[in-house]
């Protein structure tokens, strides 16, 4: 009787090993950076646009601008002026912590990553860019894809 009971128990150890390996894989490849990107936007196609690796040293401010000119951050629409003012304040504080000689009038070291829909009119996009400039941002990266449909 006891012999038949022990034969009916499956050895779960290999399955557990495999599941842990899968968990490790997903933990390593999951990047929460993608959450800041609005994937519904259709980026323009520009042949010379190349992916740039910052190796995590450069601080980035990702701004998604849809074709109606709305600023989308982590899937939520934001008011352009107050949001960018707050971000600039934080970037300035961060810059001062890294470099005590950083002055309030200096250009911010943060790169503004603009992800705009290809149909966004310039007038609406320029509102975002101008507000960034008024708050001290000077470095910009305009996002595009290098092939259609990607």
């Amino acid at each position: 009787m006891s012999g038949s009971k022990s034969e009916g128990e499956a050895d779960l150890t290999p399955m557990l090993d495999m599941v842990f390996q899968l968990i490790t894989f997903f933990m390593l490849v999951t990047s929460f950076k993608a959450a800041s990107l609005d994937l519904s936007l259709r980026l323009p196609v520009v042949g010379s646009a190349r992916p740039v690796e910052t190796q995590g040293e450069e601080s980035l401010l990702v701004l998604n601008v849809n074709k109606d000119g709305q600023l989308i951050v982590y899937s939520l629409p934001q008011d352009i002026v107050p949001y960018l003012k707050a971000e600039a304040k934080m970037a300035r504080r961060e810059a001062k912590e890294k470099n005590p000689r950083f002055k309030d009038t200096d250009d911010l070291p943060t790169t503004v990553v603009v992800r705009a829909d290809k149909d966004t009119p310039f007038g609406l996009l320029n509102l975002v860019i101008k507000t960034c400039q008024e708050n001290g941002f000077r470095k910009f990266a305009l996002k595009a894809t290098d092939r259609a449909g990607s």
Binding site: V19, F20, V29, A34, R138, T145
Partner: peptide, 26 residues
């Protein structure tokens, strides 16, 4: 472990490969 695995599978969203043009915009 299966619950953890389900969480990671469901939240897995590979980041698209995007290019960019870097500018100084004064």
């Amino acid at each position: 472990a299966f619950q953890l695995l389900a969480f990671f599978i469901m939240t897995f969203k590979p980041a698209p490969i995007e290019g960019q043009i870097n500018l100084k915009l004064p």
